[in-house]
């Protein structure tokens, strides 16, 4: 028995060091009093990925003013989606989790922290949408409009490494799916990815945010990113334009309540609040597309003619295995050849 205790301690330490060692920084803030200033009786821990931080800053006070949110305080933690998911998996207390892609929730379903029914609701567990976009220099001097423009001679494209950045997998699947939409075979679409990643991507940053920093520092002609990131960069006064290709992927960001927490009822109430018009408008103000059609209509997001979903490409579980398995995934194999075939 002693050995087993020691072994599980070792595993816990290993998990902790793995998380610490990968440099996953997360901000935690404590918002223990409700908007009214009255003392709170319950406190929900929100563990989320970084980008929607400003949106939640507006949504939480609105929730606390609603009947369901009376007396509910929050602790908030923001960081890279994959790191946050792994931290919750390893035992970080959480009541509500918000990630950039569904597999980070699936990990928690597998370990019975989230109910398997999490995606059964009207919006399939999603609270915000976006689309993959191509960020370009102000005025689009290289006239980049389509995915094919990215592999024209001399064009340098930035996209984060899909193995260090979970969110970058949206970019890869957008580029791949767009080729299929244009009538290419899966083999031709993979060949496109190989050309793009090995001949036109000089830098693979660790995250979407770092890639944006590299682009703003002057590297590259185009940056594959998400519409909401591009809108946010423009809102912050950065000198960039963006184009949305006709064929692009619908990005869907999930939220779920943790089923093992102390305040499951309040956690579910908060998750439900996120699809109210108030919350959906707050998300839209930060560049996200609302998932509620009535709210979406009030904003002027362009509708790409060839929009496709991750489900149309087979769904995340299948894609994670065939494309992104570090050993036999097709993108892993392309990455393994990245160094030998590019030379600047």
């Amino acid at each position: 028995m002693g050995i087993r205790v020691f072994a599980s301690a070792l595993v816990a330490v290993a998990a902790a060091t793995a998380i610490a060692a990968c440099g996953g920084s997360s901000d935690t803030s404590d918002n223990s009093t409700a908007a009214s200033g009255a003392p709170t009786t319950t406190k929900l821990a929100l563990v989320a990925y970084s980008t929607p931080q400003d949106a939640y800053g507006a949504i939480i006070p609105a929730f606390q003013k609603s009947a369901a949110g009376k007396g509910v305080g929050f602790t908030q933690s923001y960081g890279p989606s994959g790191d946050q998911s792994r931290a919750v998996d390893a035992g970080q207390p959480a009541d509500v989790v918000a990630f950039s892609l569904a597999p980070d929730i699936t990990r928690l379903v597998d370990d019975k922290l989230v109910s398997p029914a999490w995606a059964n609701g009207r919006y399939k567990g999603m609270v915000t949408d976006s689309v993959a976009a191509i960020v370009v220099r102000k005025g689009n001097p290289k006239h980049i409009k389509t995915w094919d423009d990215l592999i024209k001679p001399g064009i340098q494209v930035l996209t984060p490494n899909p193995f260090t950045s979970g969110g970058a997998r949206w970019n890869i699947m957008a580029a791949y799916g767009a080729q299929l939409k244009q009538g290419k075979t899966p083999a031709q679409a993979l060949a496109y990815l190989k050309t793009l990643l090995t001949k036109h991507v000089p830098v693979q940053d660790s995250s979407a945010r770092n890639a944006l920093n590299t682009f703003l520092a002057g590297k590259g002609d185009a940056l594959i990113s998400y519409e909401n990131e591009a809108i946010e960069a423009q809102q912050k006064g950065k000198d960039v334009d963006y184009v949305i290709p006709d064929d692009t992927i619908l990005i869907e960001n999930p939220v779920a309540a943790i089923s093992t927490g102390k305040h499951v009822k309040q956690a579910q109430a908060f998750v439900d609040f996120l699809t109210t018009p108030t919350a959906q408008k707050a998300f839209a103000a930060k560049g996200y597309r609302p998932v509620v059609p009535a709210v979406l209509k009030q904003f002027h997001f362009p509708k790409p003619s060839g929009l496709f979903t991750i489900a149309s490409l087979g769904g995340w579980p299948k894609i994670m295995d065939t494309f992104f398995d570090p050993d036999h995934g097709s993108v892993a194999k392309i990455e393994q050849s990245a160094g030998v075939s590019t030379d600047k």
């Binding site: 793995a18 060692a21 990968c22 440099g23 792994r86 490494n161 193995f163 260090t164 991507v201 000089p202 830098v203 693979q204 940053d205 660790s206 570090p326 990455e335 393994q336 050849s337 990245a338 160094g339 030998v340 590019t342």
Partner: peptide, 17 residues
């Protein structure tokens, strides 16, 4: 961070995690 070219071990390990 290009694999085989400018990717150091710590970043490679980060990708595996």
């Amino acid at each position: 961070n290009i694999p085989l070219k400018t990717q150091v071990s710590s970043v490679y390990v980060f990708g595996l995690i």
